[in-house]
Amino acid sequence: MKRPKIRIGVTGLNAIDNPGPGVPVIRGLLEAKSFDAHIIGLAYESLEPGIYMHDLVNKTYQIPYPSAGADQLIDRLEYIQEKEHLDVIIPNFDAELYSFIKLSPRLKKMGIHTFLPTMEQFDERLKVNLPEFGEKYGIHVPKSEVIYQVNDHKKHMEKLGWPVVVKGKYYDAGIAYNADQLAGYFNKISAKWGLPIILQEFAHGTEYNVTGLGDGHGNTISAVPMRKQYITDKGKAWGGIAITDEKLLNLTRKFIKETKWRGAFELELMKDKKGQFYLLEINPRIPAWVYLAVGVGQNIPEAYVNLAMGKEVEAFETFESGKMFVRYSWDMIVNLSDFEKISTLGEL
């Protein structure tokens, strides 16, 4: 039977040391059994490596930064749509999700499907709202406080204790062992990502992550837990192993059922010595290590596209545990003319 061709726009092509999920998402899409994927890259910067991976990406367009606002983004997407006739867009950055969620009805009118969390779901799981989220859904989360001025930390330290994790509202985090270090992280992170800054109680233990997909009605379509085995100085997994911890899987199913989560997500958790899991963060998108899920039998990008297209998708029941991913870096040789095209014309 001939498989349908689906034209998919993918962001997050920055396969760097703090990698965006775009390239592994594309690898999953190209391995899809239910359709043939035609990939259109959507990039913010001209040196995002995925732009030059011509065996994975058919064509790439530059799009405006989220800070430029939703109007500029929709203008650019209208231009791209005229040429590419996209069926689906998979946004892969936290910072761009707000715009894409807001624009999703307009995108739908243009023929572009998305499968994103609702604005309520997106807001509810924000780092600044995590304690209330934990309380509402009965999930353990470390204590945290939001600050707008560096000196405000003083009134929370008795409650949070040292060390404390200093987090940006979207990205970046550091562990501060004293007030000087805290001030350093506060200034560095707020300069890059803005205010507020979140101070989170430091949870001791082993890091675990789960990626998955909810159908928006409380059903779990996919859930794959992973233990980080090699962590970079940016806290990113450079190696990890799929595991079968039922406690983690039950927690994930509970999260999806209670929130009726729509779309992909990543849960970041810490397991303490007593075996108790603490939820550190919920990322409302596919993570950069998603290809592990594909490799163990749950092709999340494929299921995501089918859900976006309104198709019935059966939940994955099993996956192969004990398989690992080991990330590597790779130097591509790129013609200057390619760099010139994406830099000057905004497309390649």
Binding site: T206, Y208, M226, R227, Q229, G240, I241, A242, I243, T244, D245, E246, S321, G322
Partner: peptide, 8 residues
Amino acid sequence: VFNPVTGE
């Protein structure tokens, strides 16, 4: 020896 629950 591999523990598939903890990944150790």
